[in-house]
Design a protein around this nucleic acid. Structure first.
Length: 282
DNA sequence: ACCCAGGGTAACT
DNA sequence: AGTTACCATGGG
């Protein structure tokens, strides 16, 4: 843990490294993109601050793209965002006890499970259902450009308060189809306080999942993703037809014991490995 | 014209 | 509790 501020950048130690190309592309987030003319430089948001991220050995360099960014806050937020509390080298060592996991970890050793904002993650994964990544990204960008706060020349993900003004028809106009109703319900339940991240503090992960499933359009898969990607629930393992098929193939049914308690992190290694090493349809 | 996309709901057995 | 059509949309 620990960061320093130098030349207008936050420099954050990432023990064991962090590969932004993989971390931002393994299905957990939708807004980061690599600058076309600057390989290795990624732009996106940490909290409400637009940033550039670039690796320098095992150091994450984070440069804010908005003049009013509080560097100290950005440093703290970045530690949380890049999950610096978790000892990834130790975890990977543990996962290595299973030969298949060992191979998956070696295939994409730089993966990190991000800690993203709760509301953004909730809405994003509602939009993700029965949808494909390019279109998910397009809809989310439209949502940000229409309702998000402009920060520099980028648009932050809208707060629930800002989305309060968006009717179901307004959301439908952003081409999200049948999901417009679901996003609207999520906004209402968050605004009313019926769903609050803090309420899940002393719930077990299955209990927290049921709690989130109060929202129409949120089932076990979406809830699992929200818990894993925004609530630090590393034991959340979002099941879906896709991953179930790969698990049957790789492990012949049930998961190896060495990933217990950290199934969610293990899943990201499995996901990335299966995507590029198993034939399509398998 | 079809099929699918890391789902979920409502309406059935 | 377990199965099934349907949901909007865009890309192959």
């Amino acid at each position: 843990m620990g960061f320093e501020i130098k030349d207008g950048a936050v420099i954050l130690a990432a023990k064991g490294g962090m590969d932004p190309a993989v971390t931002f592309d393994c299905g957990q987030c939708f807004r980061w993109r690599e600058e076309a003319d600057r390989p290795g430089v990624f732009t996106g948001f940490i909290g409400r601050d637009p940033c550039e991220v670039e690796m320098e050995e095992d150091l994450i360099h984070i440069r804010p793209l908005c003049a009013d960014t509080d560097m100290r806050m950005l440093g703290k937020a970045s530690e949380e965002y890049f999950d610096c509390r978790t000892d990834y080298p130790a975890l990977k060592e543990r996962f290595g006890a299973d030969p298949v996991m060992k191979e998956a970890v070696e295939f994409a050793p730089g993966i990190r499970v991000l800690n993203q904002p709760f509301f953004e993650t909730l809405v994003s994964f509602i939009i993700s259902q029965n949808n494909n990544i390019p279109r998910i990204r397009k809809i989310i960008e439209a949502l940000c450009e229409t309702y998000g706060e402009k920060r520099g020349d980028m648009y932050a993900f809208p707060t629930p308060e800002r989305l309060a003004s968006a009717s179901r028809d307004d959301l439908f106009a952003l081409r999200m189809g049948f999901r417009a109703r679901y996003v609207r319900d999520a906004v209402e339940k968050v605004l009313s306080g019926e769903v609050r991240q803090e309420d899940m503090g002393d719930m077990t992960t299955p209990e927290a999942s049921k709690y989130l499933e109060k929202i129409s359009g949120v089932g076990p898969k979406v809830a699992g993703c929200v818990l894993l990607f925004s609530c630090g629930r590393h034991d959340s393992f979002p099941r879906d037809v896709w991953i179930n098929r790969r698990i049957r193939l790789l492990f012949g049914g049930d998961l190896p014991g060495c990933i217990e308690g950290e199934e969610g992190i293990a899943q990201q290694y499995i996901f990335q490995y299966a995507r590029f090493n198993l034939e399509k349809g398998q």
